[in-house]
Amino acid sequence: MDVTITVNGVRYQRDIEPRMLLVHFLRDELGLTGTHWGCDTSNCGTCVVLIDGEPVKSCTTLAAMTSGHEVRTVEGLEREGELDPVQQGFMEEHGLQCGFCTPGMLLTARALLDRSPDPAPDEIREAISGQLCRCTGYATIVRSVRWAAEHGDGAGTAPVAAEQEVGS
């Protein structure tokens, strides 16, 4: 079947099997391997991407279901060589060790800050509670997201606003 999916602002048309999961569409059809493929059972959360701005586990979403929708992956966080504040925060506060969970964590953090620009640590923990990290014990991830909240150009620049800045 034909699908048209906008990923990181680029429209892609592909002929795919209806059973193709979004995570495999991103990785295998588009070569966007930043989205990691983990447990396959919607438990670990490393495959989290944003669909129309909301975090979703892409191993449990059919690519066909996102046809006509906008997907944002970790590759879409950086703008013109400038890291998103959440990416910078993970660097500054050592929010990762092995990095396997990181793409999902970054996107959930981005969506959280878009909704709630100054989240308390408990709010951050709640937001990432559907995602597993086996290195950090989560403490540095929480600090990383706080760093992004405090340094995000007015705490949590909305992606739309960032896009306009790039375009101007």
């Binding site: 989290v48 909301e54 975090p55 979703v56 586990k57 449990t60 559907g130 995602q131």
Partner: peptide
Amino acid sequence: IADPVVRNR
């Protein structure tokens, strides 16, 4: 129920 990401769907 489930977790916040699953609850989005």
